[in-house]
């Protein structure tokens, strides 16, 4: 779990203690491949597609998803990243500084954006990301791909491509790394 995520998850500033491994690295690889197939099927190819990872957790997933898309279809897909620090609805409540500079590789007008994040929880980050994307142009469509959907939405947002649906309690935490996905708790 990235430093910034740890600071923003109650009890603020704790550490993640894993209880169960819910996905292994291989599971994630297979899920990524399946989502890539679903993306190509749904969009009938990769024309005008751009993959954008959400800082911090979505960025490595976005690049892996891109690799999978290219492997299947043979076309190169532009990949970028967006940091929603300036678009959050809790600005001033918690210290959130951007992790890196937002990098959108092309004009979004008329393109289909695949937004990628590691964990979908309340949906507030995605809301902020949609606001951010609209400042870069009018995308034809925005689709959401997440490795884990853990429920507990606070906004009417749903994912289009899901690695794994994982029922959780609100006080649990989900940690996605390159080694796999763990379910556990934040402990201070």
């Amino acid at each position: 779990m990235a430093e910034r995520e740890r600071r923003l998850t109650p009890p603020y500033g704790g550490v993640f203690v894993a209880r169960t491994r819910v996905m292994t690295a291989d599971d994630m690889k297979r899920a990524t491949k399946r989502m890539a197939h679903e993306i190509i099927e749904r969009n009938q190819g990769l024309d005008d597609l751009v993959v954008i990872g959400l800082q911090t957790g979505g960025v490595p997933l976005a690049s892996r998803l891109c690799d999978a898309l290219e492997l299947i279809d043979g076309t190169e897909v532009p990949v970028g990243c967006v940091d929603v620090a300036f678009y959050r609805d809790d600005i001033g409540l918690r210290p959130v500084l951007p992790e890196t500079v937002t990098d959108i590789p092309c004009d979004l007008d008329g393109r289909t954006v695949i937004l990628v994040d590691d964990v979908l929880f309340t949906g507030r980050t995605i809301r902020a990301a949609l606001d951010a994307l609209s400042d870069y142009g009018r995308a034809r469509a925005v689709q959401l791909a997440v490795m884990v959907d853990r429920g507990h939405r606070e906004l009417p947002i749903r994912p289009d491509y899901v690695g794994k649906n994982l029922p959780t309690r609100r006080d649990e935490a989900v940690d996605v790394t390159a080694d796999g996905v763990d379910l556990g708790e934040m402990v201070k």
């Binding site: 678009y87 600005i91 500079v101």
Partner: peptide, 27 residues
């Protein structure tokens, strides 16, 4: 250095077609 790193992000904002973010709305 912290200010410099944050400035990098705002330079990117300033280069956009719509160089505006809602970060300090209502302030």
């Amino acid at each position: 250095s912290e200010v410099m790193t944050l400035t990098d992000s705002f330079v990117e904002v300033s280069e956009r077609t719509i160089p505006k973010v809602p970060a300090l709305r209502g302030r």
